[in-house]
Design a protein around this nucleic acid. Structure first.
Length: 781
DNA sequence: GGTTGAACTTAGTAGGACCCGG
DNA sequence: CCGGGTCCTACTAAGTTCAACC
């Protein structure tokens, strides 16, 4: 039991009288998010009122930027002004310089690294041996994905080699497979067979390859010893990234008009123009910031003449271009099966060639082997940089990471990599610096890979360790509410929110660089309202802010009196745009958490509370007598409780209303059918009573069965309707993928005889293979 | 303690793949 | 077999964390 016993549905069932969010449990699934979405737009208007606000220290540092402190109505203007000043003072140059510096640093760092620690040995280490020799394969240049390119078969299929790499250890483990394991394999084979059916029938050679591949996929890395801290791999070889296809100029007959007159654009300017044209009917292109950013970046790509002519975006007419792209899209849809098949095959070829790497004797799937193509940046929410040109990434921007004794992927002909490094302290294969935020982007492995899976597993283990000491921590922070030190009090209240409401940590963000969103530590006074009494409840805090991805968090939460009083204290003498926790940031908070438990950080609470809620809810909601669909509904509801807790939202599907109506029609029809069937049963019964012969008895039986069948069908439909309605704007996927210990779900499936496929699709099963393999029905989070 | 950058996880969405009833 | 709808995947933005440096 928990101290205070006021932990809401995180720890209570749905039937508890007073739930977490302050409304009756029956409405738990709907209300929270429905409300949020309703107000989303309104909120967006408000969102930037305090955009320009910064902490005092920051103000001092950047006074020039903050000469204005007006709110709402002038925020647009402010943006413009800021952009102007930025450009005047040559911010783009600064930007470049910044990058240069970064590059230098990187190189420096790399030097020190490579001189010191990274020694890749060929001898056996940790049960692995590096491949003695790298196989020779013909490379096509791979600079871009061209469908025209000839298909060059690999000299030797990779699978063959991979099997050779396989350490003996694994083979022996394969022999002592459990029954369950075998079942799973059969599953896998089934799936594969089904798949290969729609494609070409595999020839004998292919089949053999497939089998070997399967063996490879069965690799149970979770039964092997882990690497020592910090070392991520011993051997890494890959083929480098796939670049975006080069720009293909528009046909002559597709015109661009400026000020009513046809104008032929230079290829560079034209390319950027097409990015805009493709988005023409998106509302983005009507937004002032978007247009301004776009136009500024577009002009940079123009020739001198173009620049002098094109001075006003409003005089640009992209409609012809836009029509052309729409027509092309149509044409693509109308393509024949053969053509579509061809494209599909080409994609598969690309995947086969570039989509995998070899890491420590195993072939592993890469998550994103394609370089992000150029385009216009689309930030989420009210992003100050929306519309900026995301430039094309060239080989010269690319850093390759692989082992020293691997075959380094060759750059496209006529090009060079920016750098090749051999850093086995990191997991990425390829990286480049993106030009919008100046941040680094990476190519990394798929979630099904050892390196990701291990980390994922570890994450849940940390959360389980938190379970053991969470009571202690909760007691601790309740004590801290009374502390004499302001900092400690703020820390304790913030932690309470993070724990109770599963808020994110909330790092500070550089203002003007991103949308104005907050998390716990960055909450501002304006984001909460205190109600000493609301709707019959005492000490209610009303939260209203935009979180990650500009998703609105709206919630009214009754809190303990001490918390309430503390909040009042924190808000004293502050402006709405001041930080609520002015003595706190994520680094202070996490340092404290680290002292409470090794490896504890703010986000562990989210994982912990999500997983424990799922487990709890599954226990509460699963009815043993229920059939499978009903049990799955229960699962979804448990999942939904977590999604609500974590505020995982989605836009209601565009077709929602319609499909809901369709479903209702079906239900109504089914109901009628049921009435009819019942009537028929009744008359059959009456008939049987009179006649008392075999035939009429049989009729009764069959009618009974019919009624039963229809009842079941109706049930199913109704379950479906409920499920869908409750799910309207809640996204289950995020929590399922990132917060819920998969072993809880696996155990639940085993306990109730639910096929795992009903809960996890193929990709998810691959990601959670470790959990599916190891969790038994008695698993406790 | 603050700042910054690198690395890695978490997030929603667009659009194509797929599926199912008529 | 077709059209409407759902599901899934790819994509990439937006967070968190940690370590280095000051």
């Amino acid at each position: 039991m928990l101290p205070g016993g006021k932990w809401g549905p995180i720890l209570k069932g749905l039937d508890s009288d007073k739930d977490f969010f302050g409304f009756s449990s029956s409405s738990l699934f709907l209300q929270h998010t429905t409300d949020s979405h309703k107000h989303k737009d309104k909120h967006k208007d408000r969102e930037h009122r305090h955009k320009e606000h910064k902490k005092d220290k920051e103000k001092d540092r950047e006074k020039s930027k903050h000469s204005n402190s007006e709110h709402k109505d002038s925020s647009e203007k402010k943006h413009k002004e800021k952009e102007k000043t930025k450009h005047k003072d040559g911010s783009s140059e600064k930007h470049k310089d910044k990058h240069k510096d970064k590059d230098k640093e990187k190189r420096k760092e790399e030097k020190s690294k490579s001189s010191g620690d990274v020694k890749i040995k060929k001898e056996k280490e940790n049960g692995f041996s590096s491949p003695p020799r790298i196989k020779e394969e013909q490379d096509d240049d791979g600079f871009y994905a061209s469908p025209k390119e000839d298909f060059k078969p690999l000299k030797r299929p990779r699978e063959d080699d991979d099997v050779e790499y396989k350490p003996k250890k694994i083979k022996t483990e394969d022999i002592k497979k459990s029954k369950k394991r075998k079942q799973e394999e059969e599953e896998d084979i089934k799936v594969k067979k089904a798949k290969s059916k729609d494609k070409k029938a595999p020839d004998g050679d292919n089949k053999r390859k497939k089998q070997k591949k399967e063996e490879e996929q069965k690799w149970k890395w979770w039964e092997e010893e882990r690497y020592p801290e910090g070392i991520k791999w011993k051997f890494l070889e890959h083929k480098g990234p796939v670049f975006a296809p080069p720009y293909e100029p528009l046909p002559e007959n597709v015109k661009f008009y400026y000020d009513g007159k046809v104008m032929k654009l230079s290829p560079k300017a034209e390319e950027v123009a097409t990015f805009f044209a493709k988005m023409l009917d998106h509302e983005y292109t009507t937004k002032e910031i978007f247009r301004k950013n776009f136009f500024k970046d577009w002009r940079k790509e123009m020739t001198a003449e173009e620049k002098s002519t094109i001075s006003n975006l409003s005089k640009c007419d992209f409609t012809h271009m836009s029509q052309y792209f729409k027509a092309q899209g149509e044409a693509r849809k109308q393509m024949s099966k053969e053509e579509k098949q061809k494209i599909k095959e080409e994609n598969e070829r690309l995947l086969k060639e570039y989509g995998y790497c070899v890491m420590d004797n195993h072939k592993e799937r890469i998550a994103n082997f394609k370089i992000e193509p150029p385009g216009l940046f689309r930030g989420r929410g009210n992003h100050p940089k929306m519309g900026m040109l995301k430039r094309r990434i060239m080989p010269e921007d690319i850093v390759i990471n692989c082992s020293k004794d691997s075959k380094v992927p060759p750059p496209p002909p006529g090009h060079k990599w920016k750098e090749v490094r051999h850093d086995n302290k990191v997991t990425w294969l390829v990286s480049w610096t993106e030009n919008i935020q100046g941040s680094i982007k990476y190519i990394m492995l798929n979630p099904s890979s050892r390196i990701k899976g291990e980390k994922d597993w570890q994450k849940y283990e940390t959360a389980r360790r938190l379970k053991k000491c969470v009571d202690k921590i909760r007691n601790q922070y309740r004590e801290d509410w009374k502390s004499k030190e302001m900092k400690v009090r703020q820390r304790a209240v913030a932690l309470y929110f993070i724990d109770k409401l599963a808020l994110r940590a909330g790092n500070e963000k550089e203002e003007g660089e991103t949308a104005d969103t907050v998390g716990c530590c960055s909450l501002r006074v304006e984001h909460i309202k205190l109600h000493p009494e609301l709707d019959g409840q005492e000490y209610v805090v009303e939260f209203d802010f935009l979180g990650k991805d500009s998703i609105r968090y709206y919630n009214k939460v009754p809190v303990e009196k001490r918390v309430f009083k503390n909040l009042q204290l924190f808000m004293e003498n502050k402006q709405p745009e001041d930080d609520l926790f002015d003595r706190l940031n994520t680094s202070i908070l996490n340092k404290h958490l680290q002292d409470l438990m090794e490896g504890l950080t703010a986000k562990v609470f989210r994982t912990y509370n999500a997983s424990i809620t799922l487990q709890q809810q599954l226990k509460e909601l699963t009815t043993p007598e229920d059939n499978i669909p009903a049990k799955i509904l229960s699962y979804n509801r448990a999942n939904r409780a977590v999604a609500i807790l974590c505020n995982h939202q989605r836009a209601p599907p565009k077709t929602f209303e319609k499909s809901m109506m369709n479903l209702q029609t079906k239900i109504d029809a089914k109901k009628e059918q049921l009435t009819d069937a019942r009537r028929e049963l009744k008359s059959a019964k009456a008939d049987a009573k009179v006649r008392r012969d075999e035939k009429s008895k049989k009729t009764v039986e069959s009618k009974k069965k019919a009624v039963q069948r229809i009842e079941e069908q109706l049930m199913k439909l109704e379950v479906q309707a409920t499920d869908r309605e409750e799910n309207k704007q809640i996204a289950l996927g995020t929590s399922k993928l990132n917060y819920l210990d998969p072993r809880i779900s696996v155990a639940w499936c085993k306990k109730w005889g639910i096929p795992i496929e009903k809960i996890y699709n193929k990709t998810q099963r691959e990601k959670f293979a470790w959990a599916i393999d190891m969790a038994e029905e008695d698993y406790e989070f």
